[in-house]
């Protein structure tokens, strides 16, 4: 399964080549051109010569994880976090560096913790990865500072519709785009697979300036707090209710005209959808929105519970509906000549 292959590849910010390789192999036969820019972004074009409106699809390849800062005298790895909630780190398994050296994130024994420590999460700088080395020298033969540590988490299906995996944010967006590229759509479509989103939208700050499209659809895995005890207005999204349409976030506001067009497409085709009910977060949309003269952007996302953890959970139906809605919208956008050009 494509999502399994995508989520089980490692792609920490700046080290996305593994994921990029999987994507390139998948889309090679279905696009007219494919290139990798100097930030590592993968840009592919399908039906390059087709006339009519031009939609670009964007997703990011990288995932959250840890970076090795140094090795201490006992051979433990000290780490920095690339966007991970420190509460989830202790007792997780990780794979370090290109050679995927297995390790575990250790923690202080209970009997040695103080009252205060028991009440709050350990800070990332107080945690370390145990790769089973006895000395600093032994560890240094296997890893070096700057290596990344990715979550080690198998893709798993459970319940009637659920998938558990790491990096659903944003391999699920990558998978939706791959599905569109593999279809026999006749329209001109650019696909942009960005690097380094999780460290501040860095890949797209370079790729956005290389794309001249009439509309950009940014595909994401997004926050879903539809879990036990969370009041309805703080859930952001709910699983099973379909793709989440973005309203606004810290760096973009999504135009009503395009929000309504995608909502109409969903209704006309009987595809469930919902709004992303928060103004928090930031996505690559920001860079496409403001690049060279400005472009309208639609944000569509698959709700992911426990996002940015090794056990993020999504609903397969939301994934399928996100793909279906994206495809139907591309069709609608082309058939209406781009909905007219003004915003």
């Amino acid at each position: 399964m494509l999502l399994k292959r995508l989520t089980e590849s490692a792609g920490l910010p700046g080290f996305e080549s593994g994921v990029r390789g999987v994507i390139m192999a998948e889309i090679k036969a279905h696009v007219d051109s494919m290139r990798v820019d100097r930030m590592g972004n993968l840009i592919a074009v399908k039906n390059e010569r087709a006339s009519g409106p031009h939609i670009a699809l964007s997703a990011h390849m990288d995932e959250v994880g840890l970076a090795v800062k140094g090795i201490d005298s006992d051979g433990y790895l000290r780490v920095a976090s690339w966007g991970v909630d420190p509460r989830i780190l202790p007792a997780k398994t990780v794979l370090v560096g290109k050679n995927k050296i297995p390790g575990v994130i250790g923690f202080k024994p209970w009997r040695l913790t103080s009252e205060a420590e028991r009440d709050k999460a350990a800070k990332t700088e107080d945690l370390s990865i145990d790769i089973g080395a006895f000395t600093k020298e032994e560890a240094a033969e296997l890893v070096s500072p700057g290596d990344y540590a990715a979550f080690d988490s198998e893709f798993m299906e459970f319940g009637a519709h659920k998938i558990k995996a790491k990096a659903l944010d944003d391999r699920v967006g990558c998978a939706v785009i791959i599905g569109i590229l593999q279809s026999n759509m006749p329209y001109k479509i650019s696909a942009v697979f960005n690097t380094q989103e999780e460290v501040g939208l860095r890949g797209s700050s370079a790729s956005a300036n290389q794309i001249f499209a009439d509309l950009v659809i940014n595909l994401e895995g997004t926050i879903c707090a539809d879990t036990s005890g969370v009041p309805e207005h703080l859930r952001v999204t709910t699983q099973g209710m379909g793709p989440a349409i973005s309203l606004s976030d810290r760096t973009s506001v999504y135009f009503k005209k395009y929000r309504e067009a995608i909502l109409k497409t969903a209704r006309d085709n009987g595809i469930p959808c919902q709004f992303r009910q928060t103004g928090m977060g930031g996505t690559d949309s920001a860079n496409f929105h403001a690049a060279h003269g400005g472009a309208p952007v639609i944000g569509l996302a698959v709700p992911c519970r426990y996002i940015h953890s090794p056990v993020s959970v999504m609903d397969k139906r939301d994934f399928e509906n996100t793909g279906a809605l994206t495809a139907k919208f591309i069709e609608y956008f082309n058939q209406t000549g781009g909905l007219g050009r003004e915003s």
């Binding site: 920001a286 403001a290 003269g293 400005g294």
Partner: peptide, 16 residues
Amino acid sequence: AQREVDFAGAKASVWT
């Protein structure tokens, strides 16, 4: 437009 959204309007129009 959109000063309050991280200066999106200014970012776009300066290019134009």
